[in-house]
């Protein structure tokens, strides 16, 4: 018989919640499945291989008291607040079964009188509108399947904190795909968090034909993992070390520049832009790195605009 555990976080701190998820991933044993439920307050979570600055309006987010996090699974950027319930199924490879795990959620909703289905992108949708996006992590033995369930998420925040397409430079990084979304409350007005959580746990127990117990947690070990998830190096990647940041909007597109100076010489530089010219950022990076700021000449084109940003203080962010 498969042993079932549930885990729940009573904190809205994304880094703690990610740390607990990772702790459970490392702890899970053969013949066990863990269902972990958690919520974050005002947080943008980007995929493992995404570029933070091209996905998230980081200044706006932090000015509003929000948090940016990077997860170890793939996929695109998502916005979480307390109106969103996150779930994670954790087990070893041989028990890992995405369709069965999806079915647990679909059955839970069914019990609540909500008819939902899977779409081609592994999202769950109601009449074509997404309320639950999923991503997966597969280690050597231990795996997880996690995702969002939108109960009453502030939909406007999505646009406030996420860029639609400021990602042209890092063409190598994974892009987000925007979908039409729907909150479960729009479908069932009297639905609340407690009902949803109970339905999920009941459906989980029904699927594996066993009773779930609360999973013991070593708080000290979780706090250690939290240091990793909250580190700037993990969240922003190596470009976090670039000291200067500037941004400007031109008729040909928005540009954000991160760079470092050694005396007057540009020692490193990253350009993010939604300009139509896909090679522009890359070409400019190659051209500008290693040059002296004072020796750069202004010209009457995109290159000139970028040089102007570098030279003038008013573009600082």
């Amino acid at each position: 018989m498969i042993k079932l555990y549930t885990a729940a976080s009573d904190r809205f701190d994304v880094y703690y919640n990610q740390a607990l998820e990772k702790y459970l991933l490392d702890q899970v044993k053969d013949d066990e499945v863990i269902l972990y439920l958690w919520r974050n307050d005002r947080t943008v979570v980007i995929g493992k291989n995404q570029d933070a600055y091209s996905e998230c309006k980081t200044e706006t987010l932090s000015a509003d008291g929000g948090f940016l996090a990077r997860r170890i699974s793939g996929g695109g950027a998502v916005y979480h607040d307390k109106g969103n319930l996150n779930f994670t199924f954790i087990c070893k490879r041989d028990l890992f079964d995405i369709s069965r795990q999806d079915q647990i959620i679909l059955n839970a909703l069914d019990h609540l009188g909500i008819h939902a289905e899977k779409n081609g992108r592994n999202d769950l949708v109601i009449e074509g509108r997404k309320f639950s996006g999923h991503a997966y992590y597969r280690g050597k033995e231990n795996c997880f399947h996690h995702g969002t369930i939108m109960l009453e998420v502030d939909e406007e925040a999505l646009e406030r904190y996420l860029y639609v397409s400021l990602a042209k430079l890092h063409s190598k990084a994974v892009k987000s795909v925007r979908s039409r979304v729907i909150n479960l409350k729009q479908v069932k007005e009297d639905l609340n968090l407690d009902m949803l959580q109970k339905a999920l746990i009941a459906s989980f127990e029904e699927m594996y034909q066993n009773k779930a117990e609360a999973c013991p947690v070593d708080e000290a070990a979780v706090m250690k993992e939290r240091d990793f998830f909250s580190s700037e190096e993990w969240i922003y990647g190596p470009s976090v070390n670039l000291k200067f940041r500037k941004e400007a909007r031109f008729d040909w597109g928005t540009v954000r520049i991160l760079y470092d100076l050694e005396d007057d010489r540009i020692s490193d530089l990253k350009i993010y832009t939604d300009a139509m010219d896909h090679d522009l950022a890359k070409d400019l990076e190659e051209k500008l790195i290693g040059t002296k700021l004072s020796e750069l000449m202004l010209s009457d084109d995109e290159t000139g605009d970028v040089i102007r940003i570098l030279k003038e203080e008013e573009y600082e962010i």
């Binding site: 995929g47 493992k48 699974s73 793939g74 592994n122 991503a135 992590y137 597969r138 280690g139 050597k140």
Partner: peptide
């Protein structure tokens, strides 16, 4: 031990 990871349509998987 893992030396790399690859991301496919959605899963991130370690490579050993």
């Amino acid at each position: 031990e893992a030396f790399s990871d690859v991301e496919s349509v959605k899963a991130v998987s370690d490579v050993f």
